[in-house]
């Protein structure tokens, strides 16, 4: 798994490339917590290049979104692939974490 970070307007985007699973959860957690510690108001996790999320990966996404909520900051997901989207839907993730189709949507949703 590869994570790159970039700033877009007043948000930070993490582009994740690869699987988000039990074996690489530590790397993902570290990357998100690094962004969080800088008082980021909106973190967008781009899942476009993620083929697979296992149960640990799913738990981590929820955990991270909960911790952003506590900090009154927003945590959004961007463009999950169909398999990942299905797993998320079965676990009711869209009810908890906003999922967007474009970066622009994610950014304006925050502004609104």
């Amino acid at each position: 798994m590869d994570i790159t970070q970039r700033a877009v307007l007043n948000a930070t985007v993490l582009d994740v490339n690869g699987d988000l699973t039990y074996s690489n959860r530590a790397a993902f957690k570290t990357a998100v917590e690094q962004v969080k510690s800088r008082n980021c108001q909106h973190l967008i996790v781009n899942l476009e290049q993620v083929r697979f999320v296992d149960s640990s990966g799913l738990g981590l996404l929820v955990l991270m979104s909960q911790s952003f909520k506590l900090q009154k900051a927003q945590f959004s997901l961007l463009k999950p692939q169909s398999y990942v989207r299905e797993i998320m839907s079965l676990a009711n993730i869209p009810n908890m974490i906003p999922i967007y189709e474009t970066e622009g949507d994610a950014l304006t949703a925050r502004a609104a």
Binding site: G59, S89, L90, A91, N92, M96
Partner: peptide, 27 residues
């Protein structure tokens, strides 16, 4: 969030007894 329960009637097609739901601790 558990999707592993199947009802298999004798003479009809089987079906999964589940619906989208949050795993424990998510919400």
């Amino acid at each position: 969030g558990h999707h592993g329960v199947l009802l298999s009637p004798a003479e009809r097609p089987s079906r999964w007894l589940t619906r989208p739901s949050s795993p424990l601790g998510f919400d």
